[in-house]
Amino acid sequence: MTKTILAVDDSASIRQMVAFTLKGAGYEVIQAVDGQDALDKANVHNVNLVLTDINMPRMDGLKLLETLRNLTHYKTIPILMLTTESDNEIKAKGRAAGATGWLVKPFDPTRLLEVIAKVIG
């Protein structure tokens, strides 16, 4: 069965590069432009993995992560952070909030697919 990935980023080019990579590997991709949009979509779609940016308007990636982890369905769903941020302090916040992993931009398509395959099972 095709797995569905929710890709969240306020940058249209990043969303398109992520979608290009994931669709090419056979995943279904739902795109969201910020944390709030992602939350709305996460509530209506059966998502198998969330890949989210941190710095976004309306709702940032860390707030989205915290909010999703409080929802029953998303307690165990892998949530990967894909961000330009590599500071240990913010990384620790993400880890404490329940992030599955941390990927620093720019991503390499092959490595991204390897990580997703590993965490999605």
Binding site: T84, A99, P106
Partner: peptide
């Protein structure tokens, strides 16, 4: 928010 000096692939860490 960005400390990268080039367009090499960023690091990956799984928790």
């Amino acid at each position: 928010p960005v400390v990268q000096q080039g367009m090499q692939m960023g690091e990956i860490e799984l928790f």
